[in-house]
Design a protein around this nucleic acid. Sequence first.
DNA 1: ACCTGAAATATTTTT
DNA 2: TATTTCAGGT
Length: 733
Amino acid sequence: MNYQNRSFERLTDVSEILDRLNDRQREAVVAEPGPLLVTAGAGSGKTSVLVRRIAWLIKAFGVSKHQIMAVTFTNKAAREMKSRVEDLLGMNEAPYRIGTFHGLSNSFLRIYHEAAGLESDFTILDSGDQKSLISRLNRDLRISVGEFKPQQFQNFINRSKSNELRATALSPRNYREQIFVRVYEAYENYCEANSLVDFEELLLRTVELLKRNQLVREELQDRYQHVLVDEFQDTNSMQLEWLKLFCGKRNQITAVGDEDQSIYGWRGALAENMIQFEAIFPGTRIVRLEQNYRSTQTILNAANAVIQHNDQRYSKELWTERKKGASVKLFNAYDSGQEAKFVAEVILSGVSRSIPYSNFAVLYRTNAQSREFEEVFGYQQIPFRIYGGLRFYQRKEIKDILAYLRLLVEPNNNEAFSRVVNFPRRGIGSVAQERIAQYASSRNLSYWQASSEIVKDYSVQVHFRAALTNFLELINRIREEGEHESFGDVIASTISISGVKQFYKSRKLESDITRIENLDELENAAVNFIRRSNCKDSIESIRPFLDTVALDSDDKHDENTLNAVQVMTLHLAKGLEFPVVFLVGVDENLLPHVLSLKSDQNGRRGADKDSLAEERRLFYVGMTRAEQQLFLTRSGIRMVRGRMSVFRPSRFLKEIPRQFLDTVPFNQKIDSDFTKKINPDDLLGSTIDHRVFGRGCVTGLRHEGKFPVLTIDFDEHGTKQVLWEMNNFKVRR
DNA sequence: ACCTGAAATATTTTT
DNA sequence: TATTTCAGGT
């Protein structure tokens, strides 16, 4: 147990882990194993700390990489953490168990499926699947859509599950609750019978497994002696339970989070978990990271002032060694069109000074606000990329192909069967499908098995039999051909043989062109999957592929290389940073949003004060995304649901002290510091950070035609000639 | 099976 | 205003 000595022995090897860390960060990285809470303000290098702590545990404390589990919320964060640990320690030295709550739960449930009461090949339902399943069950239960919407049931079920409540544990007190519990029960039974597991279920099953099965619990607690969590403020009660169960009595947990960036309270996240951490894990050491490496002091001052209006937080104040910077700018537009035009103008004026489009971000509260910006940017030919909206793997055409794939390996999967049996149309309509279902349930067969029998039954209509035979043969044919094909080709032939591609080609709609592109993209994704994973390049990889796809809806990866203005909601912006940020729609009733100002009708959460505080945090998150310049814009008039409405300035604006905020006069072109071009000629002799090669010193400069070329001595990559690409450089103090 | 028009609905969404 | 969903007619 004497870690100190071991660390001393190895210290020389490992000192680079602590390179370029400030005192607080270092304190967190080297803290003795035990409960550690790092309250990490925006831009304070929390990921660095987490990554280096993992490295430190391994190198200094001699912990095996197999004994470490690191948990994140997004696959993106998990991937980043993994690759950064690998950068630090070398390929294959990173812990294997770095993943999301859901991804890790899934892995454990596959391993311990029997103890968890699951089939080994259970299918993961995404939220879309879940919703359509509930709708279907409601139809069977004769629940009228007028009275209750599927969405309500979905919320109810997920909320119950995340409170660790099964349907049997609920006792309805009135008619309304009776209906809800009945649907929940039916849903659970159906999932159980068909080996379906939704997102919440992944976590709940894991929690139940660890609670009930001592053997498994001890085995896992023994294996993962060190647990690390990112974005701890976003954990809900079940996720906390999950963590506690893995930690066991050892309590060697490192949690990193920022209660000021808790913006998912409406989904059950409990920022209180941060506050209660000490009480839950006795002997907690708390380290506060307050030095910010992202924004100017002015932006931080403004943001600090705003967030100070919230209580229930560890008081912390971000500071930076960076320069003061330009004041925060406020633009009061007459209407939302003008608001968008202002943003476009500022961007264009920046671009004319060779600032790349990708340095700008437009952040808003609601997706509906994107429209104006799309229009103006389109008109002004400003390249932009909107994040959010329907995810790649949620699109109909993609889900259809995935269902075909599933049917290839699991013919008895009724979900997949129903989805594709009549798409594209093959004359097996609702009547025919009803008949299959009847036949199946009366004989306790799957739809596939039922169909195989119906086909041989000569008392059944010829048309029906022929259509069904065709379908069965189609699936068999894809499977047979797939036996000798590469995985990519399996996907390709599924797309073509199924007739899905032909279907979209035959129609001449605008949207069908994108659909076909998406299908092609799916082929690429399949090829990439084989390259990135260590799965076989054959039809056998369908299962792991479907699993990955269900849990990792990540869109195309290296979009950030694209030179376009980044447009997204405040929620999606968390964790990102941009040189110039436009936080738009800073109006009362929009930010804070109306619906957060009064308690909502479902009785979900009535605490106005809590939700107002969350809106404020949202505003704070937006502000702290900005590195150099922050613009706040608002508009007196905007269209809401087809009606013109008048808007007053957001109350949050008053919370920004005057000296940090300047109002941009109407119709006056802004001309501020941020648009100053970083001139390559001024860089000679200075230290820079390169996006790819890291730190280096500029030792030479020459011009090749239009392009400046810098000679740079990199710390880790030797001397290189590098083309001046503004995007790739940051100047160090 | 497919089309059509009325009706309902519109905050945020890591998995 | 824009989009989706559903009932009802053909």
